[in-house]
């Protein structure tokens, strides 16, 4: 007699490789390098049920070309009618740069941690971005503006290399209508630029000098997005101004291959950027080796 072991029915976990079918409904060139992609989940039910928080990311898949993580840049109230701000820099994004409206893509997520804007209610909020860091920052900016009355003083500081590289410049006037301080600075001047030229830290220093230290210590939260060098300097200034480390939030960039805590490509020390991040408070960052 022999024992034929039976094959068991499939285990759960069907969502692991599941991606929502989505369609690129609009593409807006923002600068020479970046475009804003409006991507809508095709199924109306899935679109409605797609709930995310500012700072979370999705995996965007171009079948056969590749899949990569992107922070959602739209407001959470839009659900599965997403906006992603993408720079054509890798293989997948350069192909994406060539596709047009109507293209079907795969979206999975939302993944990761978010900026806890709900915990910042009643407080002053400093939103600081350098370069492409404005992409993940725009979602909490819009979130805060939509419920503006719940926050104290709101300041946005954004630095780019050149005026021509500023993203979402068509929206600044709208942001300003919500009683926010908006300071924009560029590294290098270009003809027609009227604003300040210099480092983002200079604007931040001015903002800090104008503020009161007890407000920074007791009722200020900060969100910082940008290249690692920038947020090290920015966070150091915030800490010197007595903003508590656990109330400074940053978004870290790593190349996830799964977004689900299984491939290890985004690990920092032993932390998964895709599960424990991409949004970390600065206390966690201080505890991470090689984070920045």
């Amino acid at each position: 007699m022999t024992t034929n072991l039976e094959c068991l029915p499939p285990v759960s976990g069907g969502e692991f490789e599941y991606s929502y079918k989505a369609e690129i409904t609009n593409v807006y060139p923002l600068t020479r390098m970046e475009k804003l992609y409006q991507i809508q989940l095709v199924d109306p039910m899935e679109r409605e049920r797609f709930i995310f928080r500012p700072g979370q990311f999705v995996m965007l898949e171009l079948p056969g070309i590749g899949e990569a993580p992107f922070s959602i840049t739209s407001s959470p109230v839009r659900h599965g009618d997403l906006e992603l701000c993408i720079r054509a820099v890798g293989n997948m994004t350069m192909f994406l740069d060539r596709v047009g409206r109507g293209t079907r893509v795969g979206i999975s997520g939302p993944f990761g941690t978010h900026f806890p804007v709900e915990r910042m209610e009643g407080e002053d909020v400093l939103l600081i971005a350098g370069g492409l860091g404005i992409a993940p920052l725009r979602s909490p900016i819009l979130s805060v503006l939509e419920t503006r009355s719940r926050y104290g003083q709101v300041d946005i500081i954004y630095g780019a290399r050149r005026p021509s590289e500023l993203l979402f410049d068509y929206e600044y006037a709208m942001w300003r209508q919500f009683d926010v301080g908006l300071d924009i600075i560029v590294d290098r001047e270009e003809p027609g630029w009227q604003g300040p030229v210099g480092l983002i830290t200079e604007i931040l220093k001015e903002r800090i000098a104008k503020g009161q230290s007890d407000r920074f210590r007791e009722r200020t939260s900060a969100i910082v997005c940008g290249p690692p060098v920038m947020f090290r300097f920015v966070c150091d200034l915030l800490i010197a101004a007595q903003v508590p480390v656990e109330k400074i939030f940053v978004s870290l960039e790593r190349r996830m291959h799964c977004g689900r805590g299984k491939c290890c490509r985004c690990n920092i020390g032993s932390t998964y950027t895709c599960l424990d991040g991409p949004v970390f408070d600065y206390w966690s960052v201080l505890n991470l080796k090689e984070a920045i």
């Binding site: 171009l62 079948p63 056969g64 070309i65 192909f95 060539r98 596709v99 047009g100 109507g102 293209t103 079907r104």
Partner: peptide, 11 residues
């Protein structure tokens, strides 16, 4: 001879 193929809508 060049056929007009597309991939994901890209010629």
């Amino acid at each position: 001879m060049t056929t007009n193929k597309t991939f994901l809508g890209v010629p």
